[in-house]
Design a protein around this nucleic acid. Structure first.
Length: 219
DNA sequence: ACCCAGGGTCATA
DNA sequence: TATGACCATGGG
């Protein structure tokens, strides 16, 4: 077996799908907004909400800070949990302001920035890592439900490991490699949407032979 | 009608 | 530490 399981799957997906060019956004702040809005929500619903925010010229921290909470909630209605998410966007832009702005945040070391992100109400581990990787271009990996499901099926993990345990595994497979960590998460999401949605061993799956072998060893 | 989607918080045992 | 309730829209 050549290389770690994490590296094998990456190589297989990359050959199958090529480059994805994530995250779909026109600015770092738009990445941050999308990361909050997509929490437990289909991306198509988030796209409409972001389009509404763009139409209202609200894709800037100061603009979100200035708009009314109810107004904000109604604009992001399509993304679901709109009352919760409106409050989370408010908390996010308040945090940006209190931190001295996006430029100041961009100068912080990754571990400091991560710890500060996790203090924001509504920003958990996955949202924080989305923001670190795709808005601030830091070498972290995003563990989502797709990643757990895929690697569980491959036999490489149990699936219920703690977030930080899994994150460390992927980051150690591609240390300080922002480009590959970026592409990897994008590929996993793309693959999940493409074929292996509800069952293993789907025909045409890029990982079919890995599934057929039965299991990949952890590590 | 039911299930799920690019989670997180809070209360409870 | 680890479940459970809650948040809510839209597509399959």
């Amino acid at each position: 077996m050549k290389g770690s399981c994490e590296r094998q799957v990456f190589e297989r997906l990359r050959l199958a799908y090529g480059t994805s060019g994530w995250w779909p956004a026109e600015s770092g702040f738009e990445v941050m907004v999308g990361a909050v809005l997509t929490q437990n929500t289909a991306w198509a619903n988030v796209e409409r909400a972001i389009a509404e925010l763009r139409r209202a010229d609200l894709l800037a921290p100061e603009a979100i800070a200035a708009v009314g909470l109810g107004q904000l909630a109604s604009l992001i209605r399509s993304s679901g949990y709109f009352n919760v998410k409106a409050a989370r966007l408010k908390a996010l832009v308040a945090w940006i302001h209190d931190s001295g702005g996006l430029e100041a945040l961009g100068r912080m070391p990754t571990e400091v920035l991560r710890a500060r992100l996790l203090e924001v109400k509504g920003v958990g581990p996955e949202t924080a890592d989305d923001i670190l990787l795709y808005a601030f271009h830091r070498p972290v990996f995003v563990i989502d439900a797709y990643t757990r499901r895929l690697f569980s099926r491959l036999g490489a993990i149990r699936g219920n490991e703690h977030y930080e345990i899994l994150r460390r595994r992927f980051e150690e497979a591609f240390p300080d490699d922002v480009a590959r960590l970026n592409e990897y998460h994008a590929l996993i999401v793309r693959h999940a949407k493409d074929v292996c949605r509800s069952r293993p061993l789907c025909p045409g799956c890029a990982l079919k032979d890995l599934c057929a072998v039965g299991a990949l060893q952890p590590g």
